[in-house]
Design a protein around this nucleic acid. Structure first.
Length: 205
DNA sequence: CGGAAGATCCACT
DNA sequence: GTGGATCTTCCGA
């Protein structure tokens, strides 16, 4: 049967190896309700963070602090954190007990273009990547902050849905962004994107 | 308790 | 391509 694009992804969607989930999330929708308006982005870029064994992960070496407690929730919950004094980043938790998660790095506008643009305070018309071409931009466009940390991603006001799934042949991969400090893990190819999509963040894959 | 760094973005050269 | 903004979080002392 054909799944409706706005049917929520079930919790067990996330209960798989983090790399698989990172790839499978490409093409899916992020659906966000704000003041009864529905905003929709199609996910075009993700990154996998493996947890305890991954020096780039907030759960590296088994770290478990007040902030990173969210990484140890059951599958399909949100981990939203504040970074660089001004940005938020959204993750989907895998729930495997070692702190694995998928960072949502970029999305393409599907619904609510005008509100997305206003949230981002950018000129009209926006250029590709302006609205949600980066993890901080994506959260700003969707008005996501720490209030949504620990939110279950199969219910309003923030959910991930079936969207428009893609085949693995459409997926490009490469090293993750902004983790140069992570030693060997910095070169692991755990960044994934829809091949050639204009809304993917820089540098392009 | 202090200092350093950060899963980023933007303006400027 | 480079540097500044801005402040929470974390770790070591």
């Amino acid at each position: 049967m054909i799944e409706e694009p706005f049917a929520p992804l079930p919790r067990d969607f996330y209960a798989r190896p983090v790399e698989k989930v990172s790839i499978d999330l490409l093409g899916r929708y992020i659906v966000r309700y704000v003041d009864r308006q529905r905003l929709v982005l199609r996910i075009v870029e993700t990154e996998a963070y493996l947890g305890v064994e991954d020096r780039a992960s907030h759960a590296w070496a088994g770290r478990r602090t007040e902030r990173t407690a969210s990484l140890y929730q059951p599958p399909g919950h949100a981990y939203v954190y504040f970074i660089y004094g001004m940005h938020y980043c959204l993750n989907a938790v895998i729930g495997n007990g070692v702190g694995a998660a998928v960072l949502i790095r970029a999305g393409a506008p599907v619904e609510g273009h005008e509100t997305l643009r206003l949230n981002r305070r950018c000129q009209t018309p926006p250029r590709p990547g302006d609205l949600a071409g980066g993890p901080g931009k994506l959260c700003q466009a969707l008005a996501i902050d720490r209030q949504l940390d620990r939110h279950s991603l199969d219910t309003e006001p923030l959910l991930m849905t079936q969207g428009e799934p893609v085949g693995e042949s459409e997926v490009a991969r490469g090293p993750r962004i902004g983790v140069a400090y992570a030693g060997e893990a910095a070169s692991w190819p755990l960044r994934f994107a829809l091949r050639g999509h204009p809304e993917v963040s820089r540098p392009r894959l």
